[in-house]
Design a protein around this nucleic acid. Structure first.
Lengths: 223, 223, 223, 223
DNA sequence: CATGAATGAGCGTTCATTCAT
DNA sequence: AATGAATGAACGCTCATTCAT
């Protein structure tokens, strides 16, 4: 049953699978999960249904792998952004949020899938999504916990504050996704940062915040 | 010609339509929109497909009326909750949020539909949902605008702060919806209130916040 | 079971039935039999489905009565037109055809139902239509038989000639029905008359034919 | 990419499509368009609904392709039959009509579809049918035009005479279709030929007509 | 007699999935 | 590995007909 697959063919397979996933992201983000047929995907990916079912168990399997990929990508982005926070918390926090918004902005279709298309698919997937969301919240929570012990911040309940914090990001991004893309998402960074800095009672100066934003915006991101 | 348009039959019709909608809320909140067939709804409502299509143009029409109803209900709840805020802002704010959470808690299926099932249905409906969300944001924004002019609060951008504020509520509710219902949503009220009071730099005392929460929790709500 | 129905109520019933039939003719001629629902008819007739089923057994019953009425009307027209033929055959024949075409022209919707909508409805009705058509053919055949014995005409097979004769009328009328109604059907009378006069080898003069046409066209028809 | 578009598979596809069409002709000619369900067709063709919709856009698409095929076939038959007319017009004309009737006789189901089932389907298709009919009429008209210039015939209006001519054929065929199939359609040839020869004032001798009929009837037709 | 709410059999159609090639 | 023809369960929806009021 285990055909000998040389490294090269394995690579070709991986590439093909990746190609289908990348195409599917585009198609799903335009037509939605239920509005997209397997035929739509394979035609856009210039392949055939048969090939599709060679690489994926079924339509939901595709979406799940795709969702995992995307979610991983964003998770890494979030982690990277927060890691850079050192003892200049206001600067680091500003940079982190701006960075995250920038990542989202550069990957609109991915964001649409994560935040819109993946919601309400079916009970089973809803559970999965809840778990993924939890992971994000936990990561932030861990961070907040750390801040709580080292600094003079006001966080009555780390978990709820994490939820609240991510909620602020979520809703601003949602608004941006649903409206014209002509506006830059990072335009919203300043108000969003202030809101959350104050919410957490982190000491900050306006200049540090603006400095953080600028540093990120002037940096080149490659994703 | 207008024999049967008598008040009684009209009332019976309204009741029947309401009955179908109420049943549909339950069914949709369990199986999701795509997981629910028209047959599911009519069987649960103890009626027939023909009758269904007498009252609704199609499945989407049902969901739309249902969504409008639910959204209206929550909107009213939000308005009612915020209206009671007078010059004791911290108390009023606490009461408002607690009240809103309590309304949600008492209407779990409705909340599930508003926040989960209605998302990512299809591009057309997505637009509708964006508009409804906008309505909520605008209402809160109007309120924040008012506060900005009368009080010593820090709101750099009213619109973004509204989005952020609603985002905090949204995400906490989502977490509650996706997990076991054994926990009371209002348990999250305190941390949520503090987060947003601080975010808006509203002067508050802990006792006022707790008083506000208690007042609402000990009050009987009839919806 | 036999309710006492005074003459007046009976008249009212007849009128209502007639009203529904007349309305149905219009609706059927526009949307076709299968494109017309019972609801369409009753709404156009400003009545209710219940009432409809009081007067008619079902949708097909309506069409059948309607068809019978229309067919009777045309049959009478055909008979009347042919009866006037005396020993000036060419004149009489011309008048008859022109008259028939004029009747059709004044009753476009009826003609559409007879010649288009009634065709291919279903096997059962197809038989009925064949019988009705036969009646027309037989009448004409009887007339041709008569002509054959009295005059110098060439009719090898009375039945086939009848079919052929009616076919010429039929096809010209069909063409007129399917195209813009801006052209008058009677414009086709002359060529049609000549075709059939020659086909039957009836002696004719051009002036007699034209006289026959003119006499009918200048006469007022009330139907 | 074009592996399976090999000649063989393409041929198999064409055959399958043809098979469905041929089966459908039989089924439609028995039950009529509205009396035939897609399920009826696929069961008769020993295939599945999915396959049906792989080859045809929908039920109407099937009927349309089928109608186009049939109509093309008869058109070719008509053209072939008329082309053989040379300077012995009476002989050629007789042969043409007899040939056409024979073709019809050998393809009863096709004729039923063309002349009965295709009528009154719906306004859209009615337009299509009118166009196809027009094509027939135009062809005959072209022929009559030619005769008019070369020979001593009496045709006041080429278009109307074409309509009339085709009408004679149509009605005789209709009668044959609607009644028992025990009678041969070609039995009607003689009377029909005489009717139209006289109608067009074409010089003819009885022997030539009979010769024309016989020649066709004794010839083997392969269609 | 009149009404129109209620019924449900049955239709056309879609599309995820399989499998022979 | 790749193809795409074949499958059929399952869906949304229509509409002729019934019947309680």
């Amino acid at each position: 049953m285990v055909y000998k697959s040389s490294k090269e063919t394995q690579e070709r397979k991986d590439l093909k699978k990746k190609h289908i996933i990348d195409t599917a992201i585009k198609v799903f983000s335009i037509n939605g999960y239920h509005g997209t047929t397997v035929k739509d995907v394979v035609e856009a990916a210039d392949t055939s249904v048969g090939t599709f079912y060679f690489y994926f168990k079924n339509k939901e399997d595709l979406f799940e792998t795709l969702y995992d990929d995307v979610s991983e990508e964003f998770y890494t982005a979030l982690c990277n952004s927060l890691e850079n926070i050192n003892n200049e918390i206001d600067l680091g926090f500003s940079k982190a949020i701006t960075f995250f918004l920038k990542v989202i902005e550069l990957n609109r279709p991915l964001a649409k899938i994560m935040l819109i298309e993946a919601v309400g698919l079916n009970p089973r997937f809803e559970r999965k999504r809840a778990e993924v969301t939890q992971k994000y919240v936990n990561y932030t929570a861990g961070y907040f916990e750390q801040m709580k012990q080292c600094n003079n911040v006001s966080i009555p309940d780390v978990k709820i504050c994490s939820l609240a914090f991510i909620g602020t990001l979520y809703n601003v991004i949602m608004e941006w996704l649903q409206n014209a893309s002509s506006i830059s998402l990072t335009d919203y960074a300043y108000a969003l940062i202030i809101y959350n800095l104050q919410a957490l009672k982190i000491d900050y100066t306006d200049s540090q915040v603006k400095k953080g934003i600028d540093e990120i915006l002037n940096k080149n991101l490659n994703m």
